[in-house]
Simulated scan of single mutants.
Amino acid sequence: MDDKNKHILSLIEKFEQGRASEEDMQELDVWFRSHEANTDLTDRLTPEQQELAKSNLLKRISNRIDSELPKQTALPQRKTVSSLWIKMAAACVLLVCFGTYFLLDNRQPAQQEMAGRVADFAPGSNKAVLTLGNGTQIVLDEAQNGELANEGNTIIRKTDEGKIVYGQNGESQSVMSNTLATPKGGTYHLILADGTAVWLNASSSITYPSAFTENTREISISGEAYLEVAHNPGKPFWVKTGAQTVEVLGTHFNINAYGGQNAIKTTLLEGSVAITSAGQRKLLKPGEQGLLDGNTIHIAKVDVREVMAWKEGFFDFADADIQTVMQEFARWYDLDIVFDGQQTKETFTGRIPRSWTFAKVMDIMGTFKSTHITAEGRRIMIKQK
């Protein structure tokens, strides 16, 4: 049994004994969901080989469960149900162990290949650059807390929580355009002069006025951002992203408009918004996503929890291909991803904490079994075996 599966068994034992931490539970959840979605360890065997393997493996699994897991004591009904799940989960772990060792011994486990070739990188953190109207740039993760600058009657402060807040000291006389930009591996929280809250994902930017003095409030965004717009019916809020404009009165929504993607995604959590582009205008309801693909706006129901996972500190994938997964990782871990040739059609399902290091994430990503992943510094190369 390799080290990875010994580690999973130790987590199962901790869970059974009531000692598992929140991070332990997250790792178990990610691991089991990913393997459940990719049950192809023996897909290269003939039907006869699979039947023989199944018979031998089940015997070994049964013996191993009894030796690896602690004996049951008197447990309430809820715990008994959990115990059954744990034994099934343990069987899944052991199936992977024995299946790989006895049946596919000519294939080196993908987890070991990754561990041997991929360096470790820290996850992203709270960092961004603020560009003022006069061109001055402030590296926010290096700036001291407190007042950063004044623009007219606008005061710009960095709080103890590490967010930027715009405040007014009397009637604004001078309005200047500011830009807040996050690099790869960065995220930031911003409060605009009207009280609108903005969370920027990695490799994103927002351009906005230091104060809203006109009849409308207009900003522009690239990359991904979540907004909670301050309600003010007398001053409609407009968000521009490429060829799309979102009209808001007061609402919570997410915009994904990364360069290089074929579509802009606007997801509504609360309130209402109108999306306009090339003469089209579509209204969104909570739980809906507007997808601007070329000149056409498509509306569909989506899993809001999956869309908002980045803001809550997670990657959340549902049947995602390797290109989608690795592009997310590239932005968060500040990597350059190179795809070589045709890629695997395997997919990944799982919810992974963004606080994990890259090596730990890639250990889980061993579910892409037909893929070679190697690294030269921060340049990650991916090709099919």
Rank of each mutant, 00 (worst) to 15 (best):
E13I: 11
F15S: 15
E16K: 15
Q17Y: 11
G18Y: 15
S21W: 11
E27A: 09
L28E: 08
R33Q: 10
H35T: 06
D40R: 09
L41M: 13
T46V: 06
Q49T: 05
N56T: 08
N56V: 04
R60L: 14
L69A: 01
P70N: 07
K71Q: 12
K71N: 08
L75S: 08
K79R: 06
S83T: 11
L84P: 00
A91Y: 01
V93Y: 09
F98N: 12
T100S: 14
Q108V: 15
A110W: 06
Q111M: 10
Q112V: 11
D120S: 07
A122V: 12
G124D: 02
T136F: 05
I138T: 11
V139D: 05
N145T: 14
G146M: 11
A149K: 07
G152V: 07
G152P: 03
I155V: 14
I156K: 02
R157W: 06
K158I: 09
K158E: 02
E161F: 05
E161Q: 12
G167C: 03
E171Q: 12
Q173F: 00
Q173M: 04
S177Q: 15
S177A: 14
N178T: 01
G185A: 11
G186P: 01
Y188E: 03
A197W: 04
V198M: 06
A202Y: 04
E218R: 12
A225N: 09
H231E: 14
P233A: 14
G234R: 15
P236L: 15
V239R: 08
Q244K: 05
V246P: 04
F253L: 04
N256I: 02
Q261C: 01
Q261G: 04
N262K: 09
K265L: 07
G271E: 12
G271W: 07
Q280N: 11
L283H: 05
K285N: 11
P286H: 09
D293I: 02
N295L: 04
I297H: 01
H298K: 14
V304I: 13
V307G: 00
V307I: 14
M308Q: 10
A309K: 00
A309E: 09
W310E: 10
K311H: 03
D316C: 02
F317V: 03
D321P: 00
M326H: 02
Q327E: 12
E328V: 00
A330T: 07
D334L: 05
Q342E: 13
Q342A: 10
Q343E: 09
Q343V: 02
T344G: 05
K345I: 12
K345F: 05
T347Q: 08
G350S: 13
W356T: 02
F358M: 07
M362C: 11
G366F: 05
H372P: 00
A375V: 09
E376F: 00
G377I: 06
R379S: 04
I382F: 01
I382K: 02
I382W: 00
